[in-house]
Design a protein around this nucleic acid. Structure first.
Length: 476
RNA sequence: GGCGACGUAGCCAAGCGGUAAGGCAGAAGUCUGCAAAACUUCUAUGCGCCAGUUCAAAUCUGGCCGUCGCCUCCA
């Protein structure tokens, strides 16, 4: 039984799907106007872990992740407020339109998603391809009398949605009191949010624009998720995930729009990923302290070590990202893979090794951990205990073919979650006949030196073999 | 200023009222000529600080200190 922390109620709750055996999950996806960094991907890896674990538990999961490709670009002022001007440079240098740029960064994003072995979602709907659905939703909101028109757009009147603030813990009064946002004379409340923006004022030259009953313009920031989640997953979602920074105002506003338009509860379980931090500062595009997947791979870190680092940190605690953590993750991955090799190659005896029982109890511990709000630390601890127990059986010559099958089967099953284990039996490297002869000669020489206790020469040959890719492991 | 999360060994980290899991690093040992791998053992009288509740608190309550996030595009 999965228990998960619901950001809305601020409690761990037992997960009950809307429909038995099925799970509908929506993840706030990337904004494709610049490079996604590993902080961004940590949120998607959290969703990946959740989806994979739900599948492990036998649920049929339908996962939707949106692509935010509606920007707020103007002809002469690209991305001026994002603090990231690489795109502007790229746009000019490559003479690309905003549409081409959106596709370009979307492609990069999808490539990194594959690199990190994040499960493909059922669909990645693009905001620009769902303008009609968004317009329809604004119409419904208009019919219900919760939006009003100003000179520059259509706004949602948050006073019409008393629960506004429930997710972030804000109350309408507190919001007013602590207001720091720019005052817009036309808005009834500083926190009323746009569902449709007109091409006036600073948005006069907006490149992305569509016709609507309110004139040409573009949709408000929060509308796409409400419209697309409804289209692909229905009116009530099981899970909605995203970064904690999306709680307010984005998710808060989604709730207001969706619940008003549909007259139903929008999301049963809100899951928010804590920020990734670098030297105690959030990793963000605007601070420029970010690493991209490609940066790290270029530095020699494996994609698996990136994946494992973010998956093995609990999603509700801040992760202080360092390169040392990637190294440690790699060691852990190697430890598991070394174990898989040892199991694969272990000599079997006919003994009744009792391993299937160990596998069973480990599986129970593993699930107990993940069932408790994806407590990955507990799940991993069960695995470390497991490999120690199995190695002990192997070392004491108490290992059967059945035991091997049981261990490998289990590792393969949990690898559907981790995706970093390697089951290929490490064969002797293939050498040409000539090389093989040289190697055999060197080994023979070294053994001769060893017999003569000429350790200096023996070690020299060992180094030489290592350079050729031959690893010597002496046994007694 | 408002809202929220969090503070456990050198580092990462579990723990959710019954007396500190696990991983990395470190130390000693088994094996080995040495090394690598593996295995064994050890490494927090204490969980930011101060009060309180309780037979019992890292775990509950209150206050304080500190860190971070959101309130503005951001996973």
């Amino acid at each position: 039984m999965l228990r998960i922390y619901n950001s809305l109620t601020k409690k761990k709750e037992v997960f009950k799907p809307v429909e038995d055996g099925k799970v509908r999950i929506y993840t706030c996806g990337p904004t494709v106007y610049s490079n996604a960094h590993v902080g961004n991907f940590s949120a998607f890896l959290m969703a990946d872990l959740l989806v994979r674990y739900l599948r492990y538990k036998g649920f049929e999961v339908k996962w939707i992740m949106n692509i935010t490709d509606v920007g707020h670009l103007t002809d002469d002022n690209e991305l001026s407020d994002s603090g990231e001007d690489k795109m502007e440079a790229a746009s000019k240098r490559e003479n690309k339109t905003v549409w081409e740029i959106a596709r370009y960064y979307e492609d990069l994003f999808m490539k990194d998603m594959r690199t990190l072995k994040i499960l493909p979602a059922f669909k990645y709907p693009r905001a620009t391809e769902h303008i009609q659905e968004m317009i329809e939703m604004v119409k419904v909101l208009e019919e219900k009398g919760v939006v009003y028109e100003t000179s520059d757009g259509i706004y949602f009147d948050i006073s019409k949605f008393p629960k506004y603030g429930e997710l972030s813990g804000n109350t309408l009064d507190a919001l007013q009191a602590g207001a720091r946002v720019e005052v817009n004379e036309d808005k009834r409340s500083a926190f009323d949010f746009a569902v449709w923006k007109k091409l006036v004022g600073k948005n006069e030259a907006h490149i992305m624009k569509w016709d609507s009953p309110w004139g040409p313009g573009f949709p408000g920031w929060h509308l796409e998720c409400s419209a697309m989640s409804k289209k692909y997953l229905g009116e009530t979602l099981d899970f909605h995930t995203g970064g904690e920074d999306n709680k307010f105002p984005h998710h808060e506003s989604e709730i207001a729009q969706s619940e008003t338009a549909n007259g139903k509860k929008f999301v049963n379980y809100w899951i928010h990923k804590s920020r990734v931090v670098v030297n105690s500062e959030k990793m963000s595009k605007s601070l420029g302290n970010f690493f991209t997947v490609q940066d790290l791979i270029a530095k020699g870190f494996s994609a698996d070590s990136i994946r494992f680092t973010f998956i093995s940190a609990h999603y509700r605690s801040k992760l202080n990202f360092t390169e040392d953590q990637l190294i440690e993750s790699q060691k852990t991955i190697d430890k598991f893979n070394g174990f898989i090799q040892a199991v694969t190659k272990a000599d079997v005896t006919q003994a009744d090794d009792g391993i299937p029982e160990v596998v069973k109890s480990t599986g129970q511990q593993f699930e107990k951990g993940l069932d408790d709000d994806l407590n990955i630390s507990m799940a991993l601890a069960s695995l470390f205990g497991f490999i120690k127990a199995v190695r002990k059986k192997i070392d004491s010559g108490n290992f059967s073919e059945e035991g091997r099958g049981s261990v490998i089967g289990f590792m393969k099953k949990i690898n559907e979650i981790f995706m970093v284990f390697d089951f290929d039996e490490k064969k002797e490297k293939e050498f040409t006949a000539d090389d093989q002869k040289v190697i055999n000669d060197l080994i023979e020489q070294r053994n001769k030196f060893r017999t003569e206790k000429n350790w200096a020469e023996a070690d020299r040959i060992r180094d030489e073999l290592l350079k050729m890719g031959v690893n010597i492991a002496d046994k007694k």
